[in-house]
């Protein structure tokens, strides 16, 4: 039962990324244009319009105040996949650990029951 349980969960875990990402139309994925200022506003796209450093070397941030995070260059997909993967890994480990404890306990119960049974049989005879 435990093996089936773990196998099912593992299959689900392995299938999830495939099912999740395979069907996404490109326009559904977050593009920089969807979540960030347009490419034209970024310094890389318009080098001539790039803000110049002041006397102390600080460069003014031309981005809108609510758009400062999205240009960090950190891709979101690994974070989402990492979070989801961690959850299912944690559940799998929990199931495997619980199954292992149950199996150990089962063995000990069987052993004890056998000893009690043989002791009772010996006392009767």
């Amino acid at each position: 039962m435990t093996a089936r349980l773990c196998g099912g969960l593992l299959a689900g875990l392995l299938l999830l990324p495939t099912l999740g990402y395979a069907d996404i139309p490109p326009q559904a994925l977050p593009s920089r244009a969807a979540v960030a200022p347009t490419a034209a506003t970024t310094p890389a796209a318009t080098p001539s319009a790039a803000p110049k450093a002041d006397a102390e070397g600080f460069v003014p941030d031309s981005r809108p105040p609510n758009m400062t995070n999205v240009e960090e260059g950190m891709p979101a997909a690994p974070l989402v996949a990492g979070a989801y993967g961690f959850i299912w890994l944690a559940v799998l480990v929990f199931v495997a650990y619980t199954a292992k404890r149950a199996a150990n306990l089962e063995g000990e119960i069987a052993h004890l029951a056998e000893r009690i049974g043989s002791a009772e049989a010996a006392s009767k005879s």
Binding site: P17, G20, I24, N66
Partner: peptide, 20 residues
């Protein structure tokens, strides 16, 4: 578990935070 990721990927992207 198999169906939810498909729905999650097809759900609209939140404009401020994006894909994350």
């Amino acid at each position: 578990m198999l169906i939810a990721p498909q729905l999650i990927m097809r759900a609209p992207t939140e404009p401020t935070m994006g894909f994350v």
